[in-house]
Structures are given as C-alpha cells and as structure tokens.
C-alpha cells in the first residue's frame, strides 16, 4: 500500500485511524416531516405515535432512509470537493425515536492507492444514539482526488 499526500488535506485527516467528524442531528418530527416531504414518505409509523406503538415501538419513529441520508451528509461535509463517496452499505438495526441524538461518525480503516493515482479510503461508518448504541452499522469507500 502506497501512501500519497492529498492536496489540501490536513495532516492525518485521511490517515488510517482518523475519525470521520461527527454529524449530529436530533431525531423528531421536524426532521422527519421535512424528509417525508422530499421523499414522499408519509407513513403513519413516522408521523403518529399510536401507529408507532402498534408497530411495537414507544411511539412514532424515524425513517431508515433519513439515517442513510445523514451518512451521506457526514461523508460529504468531511470530504467536500476533495473526493467522493463511491460505496456505502449499512444495516438498519434499530430506528431513531423522538428526541434521540443521532450521531453519524466513523473511522478510516484502510488506505490504498488507485490506478489513477487517487487515494481510496475504507471507512467503518455508523449511526449511534445518545446511549452509544450503534443503530446502523456500515462501511464505506471514499475516493480522494489524485494529487496534482
């Protein structure tokens, strides 16, 4: 594995062991309704406590798709135009409940050089709630722009 200096990357920011800066949001109707409005996701379990309880949860709960969206946001805010997300996968283990503090974060687990000179970062990426429970464990790969 060859280490390559990436333009504009701060020292260590994209090294193995580095942390994906936390992307933190509060789960609840303000976020869910906005997401429902763009994704046409008007489902009772995401809007109505009674429907959420009927589904075995304490009340209404958030969309897995929104957690998925927040994972993209976390990577986008971190990498910006210095690279791009090329692979993401996750399992939705438990939904976000009203008032939960959801943090998307991760670590760089691998770094290699692509044929075009770009740098590939392997990430462990996950969603966790305020108790530290990982509600959506996942992994990702980011391709950084080749050095000039």
């Amino acid at each position: 594995m060859t280490d390559v200096q990436t333009p504009a990357a701060s020292a260590g920011e994209f090294e193995v062991g580095a942390t994906v800066p936390p992307f933190v949001r509060t789960a609840g109707l303000h976020a869910w309704n906005r997401y429902a409005a763009v994704n046409y996701e008007f489902v009772d379990i995401h809007m109505d406590d009674e429907a959420g309880r009927a589904a075995g949860m304490p009340g209404a709960f958030g969309m897995g798709n929104l957690i998925w969206a927040w994972m993209h946001c976390a990577v986008e805010q971190w990498v910006g135009d210095r690279g791009r997300l090329e692979h993401l996968e996750c399992r939705f283990k438990s939904p976000a409940l009203k008032g939960d503090t959801i943090t998307i974060t991760g670590t760089v687990t691998g770094r290699s050089t692509a044929d075009d000179g770009g740098v590939l970062l392997d990430l462990e990426l996950w969603s966790e709630n305020q108790t530290g429970t990982r509600t959506a464990p996942g992994s990702a790969r980011v391709r950084l722009q080749p050095a000039d």
């Binding site: 897995g64 791009r84 997300l85 090329e86 993401l88 996968e89 996750c90 399992r91 939705f92 391709r143």
Partner: peptide, 11 residues
C-alpha cells in the same frame, strides 16, 4: 426483515 442496503456510485 430488511437485510441492508449497498450502493455503488460511479461518479
């Protein structure tokens, strides 16, 4: 059960 989601983006 939802077994998970995997996406590959081409750029």
């Amino acid at each position: 059960l939802n077994g998970g989601l995997v996406v590959d983006y081409t750029g």
